[in-house]
């Protein structure tokens, strides 16, 4: 049990570190949202599973935390991405931009 839990905890820590590295290295805001807020989601899951293996009686509460993260995180990052596009426009390095016709045109109206 202890070994499984340890493996999950270390994987979780690894994904946290990678998420931080991603948010530091990526060139524009949208890619940072991609790398940052979601690599850390898997990191959080992994740590929750690791703790659940050590203390099985906590698993209901841990499950509740995982549920909150999985429900709130994507909504938050979607709202953030939309707000970023509306206020600062699309990034300069995109290779395809289907969103421009929709949001770019209505930027001044709101």
């Amino acid at each position: 049990m202890e070994i499984i839990s340890g493996v999950f905890l270390i994987i979780g820590g690894l994904f946290y570190a990678l998420g931080g590295l991603g948010i530091f290295r990526m060139p524009d805001t949208f890619d940072r949202i991609q790398a940052g807020t979601k690599a850390t989601t898997l990191g959080a899951f992994s740590i929750l599973i690791g703790v659940a293996f050590m203390f099985p009686s906590w698993s209901l509460k841990l499950f509740l935390i995982a549920l909150f993260i999985v429900l709130s995180n994507p909504i938050g990052s979607s709202a953030l991405a939309k707000a970023t596009y509306r206020s600062f426009g699309g990034p300069s390095n995109v290779e395809r931009d289907d969103l421009k016709e929709f949001l770019g045109g209505t930027k001044d109206v709101d």
């Binding site: 931080g20 948010i23 940072r32 949202i33 940052g36 850390t40 990191g43 993260i69 953030l80």
Partner: peptide, 10 residues
């Protein structure tokens, strides 16, 4: 704000 969001999950 994005990095703050990452902070929260961490």
């Amino acid at each position: 704000v994005v990095s703050l969001d990452t902070f929260n999950v961490i």
